[in-house]
Nucleic acid binder design. Sequence first.
DNA 1: ACCTGAACACCGTTCAAGT
DNA 2: ACCTGAACACCGTTCAAGT
Lengths: 211, 211
Amino acid sequence: MLFYDESMTEKKYHHGDLKNALIQAGVEVLAQEGLHGLSLRKVAKQAGVSHAAPYAHFADKQALIAAISTEGYKRLYAYLSDVLEIHAADSHRQLIESAWAYVQFAMQEADTFKIMFSGVLEHEKDYPEFVELSQRTFQLVVKTVRACQLAGLLRPLPPELTAVMVWGQVHGIISLTLMGQISHTVLEQYDLRAMLVMTLDQITVKPYEGE
Amino acid sequence: MLFYDESMTEKKYHHGDLKNALIQAGVEVLAQEGLHGLSLRKVAKQAGVSHAAPYAHFADKQALIAAISTEGYKRLYAYLSDVLEIHAADSHRQLIESAWAYVQFAMQEADTFKIMFSGVLEHEKDYPEFVELSQRTFQLVVKTVRACQLAGLLRPLPPELTAVMVWGQVHGIISLTLMGQISHTVLEQYDLRAMLVMTLDQITVKPYEGE
DNA sequence: ACCTGAACACCGTTCAAGT
DNA sequence: ACCTGAACACCGTTCAAGT
């Protein structure tokens, strides 16, 4: 006679929510072993199922990578939303701090960031959840840009265009940094945050007075 | 009696320059099959040697990837040098056209660009040739920035810092574009070159009059 | 519907042996 | 010094079979 039910964590033949368990296991394997060490078989083992089990929930390895990337976007989106809310009163701070949050996310979850933006995921368009999260995140940038334009801080170009420029600027700097492509002499003299502020200062009407 | 010599393409037990042949084969496999399809065994087959032969010249797969990336940097460096020379008389044009050349390189050799900047290469620092090429390329940007500053076109910040910002801007935009992360509505209204010019216009003192 | 185990083709890497 | 062939551990993917 059974005196436990499905809500308990005992292993059952039917896992219950293996799909999400696999995504979580994927995030863990990625964090521990890096992009290089991320294999479907390890993820399956980490989740406690046979190596063929993932195929009941993901078409192939790419689909799992898409799910891990989407999960990464969810965390990035939440992180950016929080920062924007905290500084809701000051659009210039919103711009700086959300950019800084993006950079911090990239550094703290370097492997997640890499898998999201490295091109390892081959046909992003085929994964609607991924596309949606990426678009929602972009809209966060657009919203911030609009606020800055209303405050007279960014020039009145089309907000989507400006958002691409701002995102590109921030994304480029952190990407090159993560690849070790930023000159040693530059990194010695300026920390990343200072570089970010100076970069964003180039496109704003007034310099940032925050620091 | 032999009536051919080593300069002919006959296969010999001692290949002569297998190392470079493998790099070239790697570039071809990468172009044909993409990042996903690049395996040491395919590269060896493409070069006409056994799958173990590469290990006489490369410590492991990473070392071959480093060599392919370095080769990519060489092509990028040559491409940028050419463009800078052609527009030697006009530093604003040098800025715009070298940025555009960077973007075109990334698009025409998307897989090479990806392998160079995707993080697939894990310890770039361990490959001195790669580091050197990346630094030389960066110095090209610094030189261009200096010229623009002399012409009163870029603000007199430290040139290395400005170079990082410019490179980051351009790199970010093309990276996000290659990942399909740029909003559809933006890409419909502006072509990449227009976006690039507008982006660079943000940091220059005067807008670009070239188009 | 969900998972397992065996099977297959492919991969990176090592190593004794050949030229 | 340079390359081969066999071997090993690992991988993605498929599929018949089990619950």
